[in-house]
Simulated assay, not measured.
Amino acid sequence: MERNSPGGTGPVHVPLGHIVANEKWRGSQLAQELQGKVKLTFEEGLPLADFYLSSRSCILYVTEADLVAGHGYRKRLVRVRNSGHLQGIVIVEKTQISDQYFSAVQKFTVLDLGMVLLPVANQLEASCLIIQLVQEQTREPSRNPFLRKKRCMLSELSLVQTVQQIPGVGKVKAPLLLQKFPTIQQLSNASVQELQEVVGHAVAQQIHTFFTQPR
């Protein structure tokens, strides 16, 4: 298998249906759950990410310990977002211990960086999610719009969950907002007048303040 030298930032070449994992995950519960269900290989010094699903798609895994330790994980996320050739999917352990930090990482990942974030309770749940992502990678492209929609569900779920975290929005207003403003960029650029047509003036002001105030 060809790939760039360790520590490089170029694309990693991944055979179809395989996962290339950073050596640090060897022996972990996550790797043990993946073995036998997908074709898993390990490489030392992988650039940027923890797992590569393809040369253009990767997973960054943020553990409970990463969240508690501080903001060190953010540099990795920014490097992937700025790489120009990678679509990064961020998997975050959301537990009783890390729950207090989750809202911040969710806003940073989805609102600031525009990346997909998927919460998991543990590595067992993460393995099921990664297997699902690999299966989606290996499916043939379909012209059926309903199948295409199904493949976008993970990304859409991440977006809805994040918009729900905006002050004043919640579970009811988030889908309504995304019907009119289907991307974070469109939502953040909307005026108070445009927003109040969907959620009323008070909430519209809260949303506008959220996106315009320095964070």
Rank of each mutant, 00 (worst) to 15 (best):
M1V: 12
E2K: 09
R3D: 14
N4P: 13
G7F: 03
G7E: 08
G10S: 15
G10H: 07
V12G: 06
P15H: 06
L16M: 12
L16W: 06
H18I: 05
E23Q: 14
W25K: 11
G27T: 09
L30Q: 08
L34H: 01
L34K: 06
Q35T: 12
G36N: 04
K39P: 01
F42D: 07
E44Q: 14
L46P: 01
P47T: 05
L48S: 05
A49N: 04
D50P: 08
D50S: 05
D50V: 05
D50C: 09
F51N: 01
S54R: 00
S54K: 02
S55P: 09
R56P: 04
I59C: 13
T63Y: 01
A65L: 10
A65W: 00
L67D: 01
L67G: 04
G70A: 11
G72K: 08
L77S: 03
V78M: 07
V80G: 02
N82T: 10
G84V: 11
H85N: 09
L86Y: 00
Q87L: 15
Q87H: 10
Q87A: 14
V90Y: 00
V92E: 00
V92R: 00
E93W: 01
K94H: 10
Q96V: 11
I97S: 13
I97M: 13
I97H: 08
D99P: 02
Y101H: 15
Q106M: 08
D112N: 13
L113Q: 09
M115C: 14
V116E: 02
L118A: 07
L118M: 10
P119G: 01
V120T: 11
A121Q: 13
A121M: 09
A121W: 00
N122T: 07
Q123N: 08
Q123E: 15
A126S: 14
S127A: 15
I130T: 02
L133A: 08
E140K: 13
P141C: 09
P141V: 09
S142W: 05
S142V: 11
S142R: 07
R143A: 13
P145D: 05
F146P: 00
F146I: 13
F146V: 12
C152Q: 11
M153A: 14
L154Y: 06
L159D: 00
L159E: 01
V160I: 15
V163M: 09
I166G: 03
G168C: 12
K171V: 13
A174D: 08
A174N: 02
P175R: 01
L178D: 07
Q179N: 11
T183W: 08
I184G: 03
N189Q: 13
A190L: 02
S191Q: 10
V192P: 02
E194H: 04
L195A: 03
Q196P: 03
Q196Y: 01
E197Q: 14
E197V: 12
I207C: 09
T209R: 15
F210S: 03
P214E: 09
R215P: 01
